[in-house]
Design a protein around this nucleic acid. Structure first.
Lengths: 206, 206
DNA sequence: GGTTTTGTGATACGAACGTACCACGATGTT
DNA sequence: AACATCGTGGTACGTTCGTATCACAAAACC
């Protein structure tokens, strides 16, 4: 019964199914048939909307990055009403830590994609440069504002601090993912580091 | 012509072949036949020395971690003759950054294994806890010594700084791996962070 | 010296994978 | 009304994968 259907929407549904099954069994283990079953459609349809598996994976990565970017910026915006810029900085860094299921999924799959991109250049190295760069720019801007407001320690370099903070957050995220570190211990580490960048150490991570 | 052969040695050779082909094509893409060809033996032999693929992968992970641990501690020992403890700290952190082919391979494959371990608990979560913990202990000890020598900024917490530094180093490593950041820029970030932990900023990364 | 163990080769098997092909009803177009 | 296009199903094909099986020669053991 082919009523005219919205391709973009359908592709998104299928890609979401891809991400769900990838979270459950690992990205390396997803097959076209699994995605089809998860999405509740036939294998043929997955082929129809994405011609090849590689295109499906690529679209899945874009969707993943987009969704997570929205999540982070939403949290930062929500923290925008708060007293100091530090709250926004914390919101940005905390949103990236795998503390709940959504961010855990993101970390897991994003890292999976990153690993694949090392040997498969076709698998967009772009997202692994563009998105982190955007995050770094945003965080740098937040820190620069804090610096102009005199909230940072002297000698702080906004761009370098931003890069360091994001790298630390990513590294802590991986530690949490593999079970080496608890989310609480990770936030403690991050908080301690922020305390040495910000002049007033009053704000505390939740 | 079956002369008696050293099993441990043979297993190591095969596992090394596994790591080589994994570096080239990605860990997800290695098959038993690839390993056999790379090692110059028949498929049957790979089966003979490792009964199953999972055991081969597991052994490969152990070998990878062991080799890299030796590399890092060798560099730290080599820096032991130097003036201050900071040189040793830098040696430890720098050895972990994917600046040359060996460390790049390590980062790539270790991350690949970490991703797999999320869904495959059989694939030793152990190494992803034991080895980082050991590194953290070692770095904590180095920082504690520096602290007692009065080389650290006041308010420094050796354990927290160690955890933060290692996380940052790991995160920077991933950035380098995916091509977002150059090794030079990563060392700059790391150096800047060390400068805020150590009192005297005289020592410089090479 | 006969027998058991050990190392090695070749090959077969069943499953799963990505992709291609064929068919067909419903919809839109002229 | 005729026809082209779109969405969908089913299924087949060729490959590759991990593993299992059969066979056999060299060495070790008693």
């Amino acid at each position: 019964m082919p009523k005219r259907v919205d391709h973009a929407e359908r592709r998104t549904e299928i890609a979401e199914a891809l991400l769900r099954v990838a979270r459950r069994h690992g990205l390396h283990a997803v097959g076209m048939r699994d995605v089809a079953a998860e999405a509740g459609v036939s294998l043929r349809l997955v082929q129809y909307y994405f011609q090849t598996k590689e295109k499906l994976l690529l679209f899945g990565l874009e969707l993943l990055a987009e969704r997570f970017g929205e999540r982070v910026s939403a949290r930062v915006r929500a923290a925008g009403d708060s007293p100091g810029p530090r709250v926004m900085v914390e919101a940005l860094l905390m949103a990236a830590l795998p503390t709940d299921d959504e961010s855990r999924t993101f970390h897991h799959l994003y890292t999976s994609y990153a690993v694949l991109s090392v040997n498969d250049p076709a698998l967009a190295a772009q997202p692994f440069i563009k998105h982190p760069d955007a995050a770094e720019d945003a965080l740098t801007e937040l820190l620069r504002q804090a610096q102009e407001a005199g909230l940072l320690e002297p000698g702080a370099d906004a761009r370098l601090e931003a890069a360091g903070l994001l790298a630390m957050s990513a590294g802590l995220g991986t530690s949490i993912l593999v079970g080496q570190r608890s989310p609480e211990s990770a936030t403690t580490v991050l908080d301690h580091h922020l305390n040495r960048i910000f002049r007033t150490g009053k704000a505390v991570l939740t």
